[in-house]
């Protein structure tokens, strides 16, 4: 039996097995790549080659009608998890100098006394995105816009790096120990509200989203209301408007109070 060669044209098993396998493949390939594409009612192919390529999965250029363009400024920031990378000491230093003009509202160490956002230890990507949006006009604020338009690209990177570098200090109004409201830990699935913590820290972070612990309640409330009404539209593809417009005024209040009362989470050992 060892003398019997398996891979031989004289072995009937070999011929049969290979023949059946190849035949099945060819049959299914002809049906899948030629017969079925042509059987589609709403599709026309320029040639048989076009049909085969489509069915085989060769990417094709779409011929789409002109899209409806926004009549307002949308955010043009490309947000990725690896944006901004590791800041240099020099960048942080430049940021520190630039940050002096921000201290009036955002506090000398990035913790505000004036219901402006605390920036100390905030994610660089979150700060950078807002600065870019103020510059482009995707987000509008009477105080911030004039500041932001004067900043260069490098200025925005440096400022983000500096504030991200600062230690996370507790804000002025913590009344800790409140249980987290349901909307924060569970959201409201049927209203398409995911848990706040799944993007804004505590559970997980989504790139470009800020962490919120210790922010002023008034600020959080105003922003949620602005998202809900559509007054603020710089959230990419409505990701925040989708949530805010589903929230009740009571829930908005609850969330704002809760986050304002929380101390910042200590930073993890290695930062990105």
């Amino acid at each position: 039996m060892s003398a019997e060669s398996v891979f031989s044209l004289r072995n009937r098993w070999f011929i049969t097995a290979v023949g059946i396998t190849a035949g099945l493949f060819l049959l299914t390939a002809v049906v899948g790549l030629i017969v079925l594409p042509y059987a589609q009612r709403d599709v026309t192919f320029t040639s048989i080659w076009d049909a085969i390529c489509s069915a085989a999965g060769v990417p094709q250029v779409r011929s789409s009608a002109a899209p409806v363009q926004p009549d307002f400024k949308v955010s043009t920031v490309v947000v990725t998890a690896s944006m901004l990378g590791q800041p240099s000491q020099e960048s942080i230093g430049r940021g520190a100098t630039l940050a002096q003009q921000c201290a009036i509202c955002h506090g000398p160490v990035g913790v505000s006394r004036a219901d402006s956002p605390n920036l100390a230890g905030q994610y660089a990507s979150a700060i950078y995105k807002q600065l870019k949006d103020f510059t482009s006009g995707a987000r509008v604020n009477a105080i911030m816009t004039p500041f932001a338009v004067s900043l260069s690209e490098q200025d925005m990177v440096d400022l983000s790096a500096y504030y991200a570098y600062l230690p996370r200090l507790p804000a002025y109004h913590p009344e800790q120990g409140k249980p987290a409201p349901r909307i924060v830990v569970n959201g409201a699935p049927m209203r398409n509200i995911a848990a706040c913590g799944s993007c804004h820290g505590a559970l997980d972070n989504k790139a470009g989203s800020p962490w919120l612990e210790g922010q002023s309640a008034a600020y959080i409330r105003t922003q949620l209301q602005a998202f809900a009404s559509g007054a603020r539209r710089n959230d990419i593809s409505q990701q925040m408007r989708n949530i805010a417009r589903q929230m009740t005024p009571e829930e908005i209040d609850e969330v704002a109070q809760y986050y304002a009362s929380q101390p910042p989470q200590s930073r993890r050992a290695s930062s990105e």
Partner: peptide, 15 residues
């Protein structure tokens, strides 16, 4: 996926 929101077919006003 990174530039859907900036222009083209999937810009938010065209959704």
């Amino acid at each position: 996926p990174t530039t859907l929101h900036i222009g083209g077919e999937f810009v938010e006003t065209n959704l």
